[in-house]
């Protein structure tokens, strides 16, 4: 009898509580669109262990994403504001507050590595990508951000508009023009210059979601295109 009572209490109180909890998790602010090879994440809710990230996995605020060698993850913000492609050997944190009809304070914090971004035009709130030394505020554009092991920050803007604010040194802010790159060195030194062709290539690579390359066999009748991953 006692046993039955316990079961009753359990099913009446505990289960609905669990269901309740399960049914109203912290709303996701992002979703993984594509995952190649070795990508793990720590969800913002349960930060205990690294779990393999799979496409269609939702990510709550404060989630972390880590990529291995030759790996890639493409992440979409649920407000449709943009795509972040996390390239190999990178570590990214995702922040944002779910507000009314939008996500406020969207911030992708790049601890290490390279991310590419493609951001739709932002109405009010800017789309932030930050690193320990600088914050980029993006208003609808594409480009990439690199944060080296030696703490050098590189921001390349392919198109659109953005600005970069230093968190070190004189905390200056620099508007970035299309086709320009800014380098922020750990000592606070800034180099603002036109992008090199290598950076252009890096950008194209970062936005290539297939991680793919092409090889062509040119023949008198046309060409054979072989698409492959590296």
């Amino acid at each position: 009898m006692k046993k039955l009572f316990t079961i009753f209490i359990f099913s009446v109180i505990i289960i609905p509580l669990c269901v309740l909890k399960a049914e109203s998790p912290k709303d996701p602010i992002a979703i993984a669109k594509k995952v190649i090879k070795e990508v793990t994440f720590k969800d913002g809710l349960e930060k205990e262990s690294w779990i393999d990230l799979k496409a269609s996995q939702t990510l709550s605020a404060e989630s972390e994403v880590k990529t291995g060698t030759k790996s890639l993850a493409a992440i979409l913000f649920t407000d449709g504001s943009g795509t972040i492609t996390v390239r190999e050997n990178s570590h990214l944190f995702i922040y944002g507050d779910k507000g009314d009809k939008k996500i406020n304070n969207k911030n992708s914090f790049l601890d290490k590595g390279v991310i590419g971004f493609k951001v739709t035009k932002q109405k009010d709130d800017a789309f932030l990508i930050s690193t320990p030394t600088a914050v980029a505020s993006i208003r609808g554009s594409s480009g990439f951000v690199e944060f080296d092991d030696d703490s050098t920050f590189i921001f390349h803007l392919n198109d659109g508009s953005a600005s970069v604010k230093l968190l070190i040194g004189d905390k200056a802010e620099q508007e970035i023009g299309e086709g320009y790159t800014i380098e922020v060195h750990p000592d606070g030194q800034i180099v603002y210059r036109a992008a090199t062709s290598e950076e252009q290539t890096t950008f194209n690579d970062t936005m290539n979601l297939n991680n793919s390359k092409k090889l062509f066999i040119n023949t008198p009748d046309g060409k054979v295109e072989i698409e492959y991953t590296e």
Binding site: K26, D27, P28, S56
Partner: peptide, 8 residues
């Protein structure tokens, strides 16, 4: 999942 509808 929150505001997301997913068909996997």
């Amino acid at each position: 999942a929150g505001d997301l509808i997913i068909f996997s």
